[in-house]
Simulated assay, not measured.
Amino acid sequence: MSHPDPNPPILYSFPAKADLVEHLATFVVKKQLEAINRKGRFTLALSGGSLPDTLGGLIGHSSVKWDKWHVFYVDERVVPHDHPDSNHLACTDKLFSKVPIPKENIHPIDATLLDNIEELADEYEKELIREFASKDSARFPVFDLILLGMGPDGHTASLFPGHSLLSEEDRWVAYIEDSPKPPPKRITLTYPVINHAAIVAFVATGKGKQDILATVLDNPDEGLPSSRVRPVSPGHLYWFVDDEAAVKVSYPRTPFTL
């Protein structure tokens, strides 16, 4: 399949999830070091769902400079931080509680604003402004790395097929009160923020992702939310998948090298 995109996605496929976890860690560490060498800090946005399970390769990695990390969430469910649906809780349990990252370098939603979702989204946008506006001059924040998952319907972050948020062009952080996947209330980074990142990387594993991965990579013109993630130049898009998820994909694989 030919891609007119001058900067097409790069697909890495690994024999097993354990291989993916190891190589994803290598990739993240390399991007971290490049960012720190360039500007003294590393800005990262994380999704929840099954993604935190794939970050275990970072634990104990000798080259991670945790004190230089500044972590935000691509999307978050409007629930307390200790709620089972919280992306912050998942990332804390799987990663942050096991590494020496300063607590103040992790940016969860303001749990005192759960009853006012519009204010909650506004405050999270202000948090981004505080981190990025004083250091960068771009119209939108430029994350060094955004890590995304993908649902079986092709959604990513809290951007769902057919939803009006897919056309949001101005806000950095938007809210959704009618998510087709519970819980219904969430906040999410918008496409302008995601697509202004220096690097975006999807992670998709398992048999349950076979059909949707093939659709997103081989038929991007169908316009599924995950297909709309295309970083603007000079940004780059990567896919980290296991061979089980990629079995129906025709899109060319790239050997993993750094």
Rank of each mutant, 00 (worst) to 15 (best):
H155T: 08
G57Y: 02
E131G: 05
E177V: 07
V79L: 03
V241L: 02
T188D: 02
L237T: 12
F42E: 01
P192T: 05
Q32A: 14
H81C: 09
S47Y: 03
L145G: 10
L128M: 04
S47A: 13
L120R: 04
S2W: 07
S63P: 02
F27W: 03
Y251P: 01
P100C: 03
V79R: 00
D218Q: 08
V229T: 10
H163P: 00
R38A: 15
T54H: 15
Y191C: 13
P231Y: 08
I129K: 12
F96R: 01
W239Q: 06
D211Y: 00
D122V: 09
H70F: 13
D5V: 06
D170L: 10
G162P: 02
A25I: 01
I129Y: 14
P252I: 07
T26M: 09
M150T: 14
F256D: 06
K31R: 14
Q210M: 13
A45F: 04
A45T: 05
S227A: 10
S233D: 10
C91P: 06
A18W: 10
V193P: 10
E119D: 15
E127T: 15
G162V: 02
V79C: 09
S50A: 14
Q210F: 00
A245R: 03
T254Y: 08
H70L: 12
S13C: 14
V99H: 01
A111Q: 13
N219A: 05
D242Q: 04
N116C: 09
T188R: 04
C91H: 02
F140C: 05
D85M: 04
T257N: 03
P255I: 02
A90C: 07
P182C: 04
L237H: 04
L95K: 08
G208L: 11
D110P: 02
V216K: 12
L128H: 05
D82W: 09
V64C: 14
V71M: 07
F27N: 04
W69E: 00
T190Y: 11
A18F: 14
L159T: 04
V99T: 12
L148I: 13
A198M: 15
T156N: 10
W239F: 15
N195K: 11
G162H: 03
L159E: 06
S97W: 04
P183T: 08
T43N: 05
A90Y: 03
A35M: 06
Y73S: 12
R77A: 08
F27K: 14
M1Q: 07
T26Y: 00
K126D: 15
F132H: 05
Q32I: 10
E104I: 14
P108M: 06
P234N: 01
G57H: 06
S97E: 02
Y12C: 13
Y73I: 05
T43L: 04
S227M: 01
L114N: 08
K209T: 03
H163R: 05
L128F: 07
S167K: 13
P80Q: 02
L166N: 15
G60Y: 07
G60L: 10
K248Y: 12
F143S: 11
S167F: 06
N37A: 15
D136E: 15
